[in-house]
Design a binder for these strands. Structure first.
Lengths: 166, 166
DNA sequence: GCTGAAATCGCCTAACG
DNA sequence: CGTTAGGCGATTTCAGC
């Protein structure tokens, strides 16, 4: 089932907090149409049950001199479970690697990386990523410009879906 | 220059708010070692100057029945500026497309998409993405499992960089 | 069970030094 | 940047549906 265990108010709360994570509880309560105490209880429950993983300020990478963003497609030599896990663990320790996803198809992993400049990334690429055990091929693509970067999930799609099945 | 115009306290503020965007101002002030009012002034300034773009609750897609995550590599037929922009604008209107980045190399764009299930994504792929004007080739890769997904920038790298150049 | 109302507590956020 | 101080939000308690 979709949206398991969540009523329309819960979903509205999630949508509002995804859009503005620093909204005050009273404002949130006003928007979802209930009073503050039950609203806060719902938020706490959503946090405890893992619907909300955390809250983050969205920081502009460029303003902090992270000028370079790169996607790296990584192919491993061995795809044994332990080797896949070993690579994932390694990615977890590289701060320049912000995301690591295992894929189906030709390539094993896609990595989203940031770096202050190209030479920093190249250093990382040659000294760390390509030098890591079991790494076969790496194809990198520089991000020329970002056109869309929406954090989170599209609640509009969820709501439309629920109204269909209702 | 790196970290232009930011002192160590500003950078600490950004790092803390990136890690916990709902931290109270007094707690934030305590952590960065100043009193609350100047801390709040700094936060407001960082917001106004674009260092902080916003605050978001991190919602678990799976908990909301978005089971499928896909990367799509898109090649266009024409790479004229107006055609690139037209495609970007189109991506902005597709809720399933959460990210759209223009790349160098063989492929023109990489798209990060989410969907409730595979058939929903396939519908989108055939009826929307492949049907869009000027779209040449699309290669999709399903995310088998997510291994790392850290929002934001690695402040550790920034700090190390600044201490080097000091 | 849930929600809402009232009251307390703590934080936010001005004004000033 | 710090201190003070007033107003508002957060959060607990308790009553009602």
């Amino acid at each position: 089932m979709a949206g398991t265990g969540l009523d329309p108010i819960d979903r509205k709360i999630l949508a509002e907090l995804q859009a503005d994570g620093r909204m005050t509880n009273v404002e949130l309560a006003r928007r979802v149409g209930i009073s503050a105490p039950p609203c806060l209880r719902r938020v706490r429950t959503l946090e405890e049950q893992g619907y909300i993983r955390g809250y983050h300020a969205e920081v502009d990478p460029r303003r902090l001199s992270f000028e370079v963003q790169v996607f790296a497609m990584v192919g491993l030599q061995s795809q044994a479970q332990s080797d896949l896990s070993a690579f994932e663990e390694r990615c977890g320790k590289w701060p320049l690697v912000r995301e690591c996803h295992m894929l189906n198809g030709e390539v094993d992993f896609i990595l989203k990386c940031v770096a202050p400049d190209l030479s920093t990334f190249q250093d990382f690429l040659t000294s760390e990523l390509l030098a890591a055990p079991n790494v076969g091929s790496v194809k990198t693509s520089l991000v020329i410009r970002g056109a869309k970067d929406e954090p989170g999930v599209p609640f509009e799609v969820l709501e439309e879906r629920l109204s269909r099945s209702a």
